[in-house]
Design a protein around this nucleic acid. Structure first.
Lengths: 254, 254
DNA sequence: GCGGGGATTTTTGCATTCATTTTCTGGACA
DNA sequence: TGTCCAGAAAATGAATGCAAAAATCCCCGC
């Protein structure tokens, strides 16, 4: 059959028992798309660097056709950019891009909060409260990583409570795009910002309990606006070394 | 009944001088993507119907490879859906899909309004005011089509005033998905709803003049919520005849 | 030592080909 | 007459081939 494909570490066919969390992608294209997206989101290719078609084909054990299809989709998602006759590059997020993405996240969470207030159940709120106190514990112990994860899950729960699949999918898309930025920004988060964030989260919970949609919408927007500010500050501080390499990546008009 | 594609005037090979207003897409893939997206959005293929690869290849004068790449992207955009080993179909919007899309539009416009209030200039507001009075004229004369277009342009201006390219692109994407629904719903719009919409638009302008971001955010959300309700009512009334043809398109659960 | 220009290699974009799967068709049989 | 099944035809998904563009290398002149 596919005897021409060199055997490498990655199995050509999916293992029979797929490993727990991963949802089964029926088509090869779908699976490649997911895998390549993860591969890029997880930072396996440097920002602004070329996406090596040939190597990825070997890595995944496929031909160029499905890989290129996946590249086109990722480009449409905004994760990479396609330069005519010059292949794909991992999209380098400019300062403005990051601003825009945080604003989008703010808008989406704002919407999610508003919608959630319309239909959220007491059980769902209780679940979020539990996550909140868990997060508070990590805050007190200054356990950054777990705090970050609990934080993410709270926001995901709110989005899920909106009961809007389209919104969830869009949210996941944008979340993927700024994942690295958010994480590193959170790592550098100052004590002061931590305290603010905790207070904002308390306000979020309060508005959620009262099902105050419009109010929650405002709070979430400003919460994300604050995250944006923190991320940009972090970028300014830590990013000086990165500036140089951001410059020479050439034109990238959309 | 297989041939849903009418023979239209699109030449098989691209004319040397590309036709007028269209922005030049550097790559063939990009051009095919745009053309195919327009082709679908404009309703040239019935909802739920198969997207005939072979015929479209002949129509555009290309091979299957770039066409299939475009199909994958359109599927990611939510315009069509891909059934494994069974090709692409134009996505049939369920009632729930339409609800979700209007909610998304509400969220995006809500965000746009909030952001716009931060940076909009007096000139931009004046421009929107002119459009508003133009629209008011069409309202008085019951000139449905022009009213719809002026309405669209006002909302586009607000989104543009947010100065967020990512938001604009996302907005355009969702607007394309529900274009048909919105338009037909507007056509059926009752007198009463027209009056309401005009009042809402006045409130929008008022909040915009005062740069009351949070307030405008609320107004726009509820404005879109009202549009959603109107669209769904229209669907319930006029959609009875469509129900039958919606049933037998086979499985398509999401 | 350094820069420039042309040939070579690599990469890209699309067309074509090939193996499967699905769908259509026609006929056997209850 | 209706149903089921086998074979043919068509469509799909992915691999490969090929021409053109880009990147790289190499050598020459300065």
């Amino acid at each position: 059959m596919k005897s021409t494909i060199p055997e490498n570490g990655v199995p050509l066919t999916r293992p029979a028992g797929n490993g727990g969390a991963e949802r089964t992608e029926p088509s090869l294209h779908g699976e490649i798309l997911s895998r390549l997206r993860d591969y890029v989101v997880e930072g396996n290719i440097a920002e602004g660097a070329r996406v090596p078609e040939r190597q990825l084909c070997e890595l995944f054990g496929i031909s160029r056709t499905p890989l290129r299809e996946a590249l086109k989709v990722l480009a449409a998602e905004g994760l990479i950019e396609l330069l005519p006759n010059r292949g794909a590059r991992v999209r380098q997020l400019s300062r403005r891009d990051i601003e825009e993405l945080f604003e989008m996240m703010g808008g989406l969470e704002s919407l999610a909060g508003r919608l959630a207030c319309e239909t959220i159940t007491d059980e769902e709120i209780a679940k979020i409260e539990r996550l909140h106190y868990e997060m508070y514990g990590y805050y007190l112990h200054r356990h950054m990583h777990n705090y970050f994860q609990a934080n993410q899950r709270i926001h995901e729960k709110i989005v899920a409570a909106a009961r809007n699949e389209t919104l969830s999918a869009t949210y996941a898309n944008f979340a993927g795009r700024i994942r690295r930025v958010r994480y590193s920004a959170n790592f550098a988060r100052k004590r002061q910002r931590w305290g603010e964030a905790m207070r904002e989260h308390e306000a979020i919970l309060d508005a959620l309990r009262r099902r105050a949609g419009s109010e929650l919408s405002d709070i979430l927007f400003h919460h994300l606006r604050a995250k944006r500010t923190a991320a940009l500050e972090h970028l300014d501080e830590a990013g000086d070394g990165v500036q140089a390499q951001e410059i020479d990546r050439g034109v990238s008009q959309r």
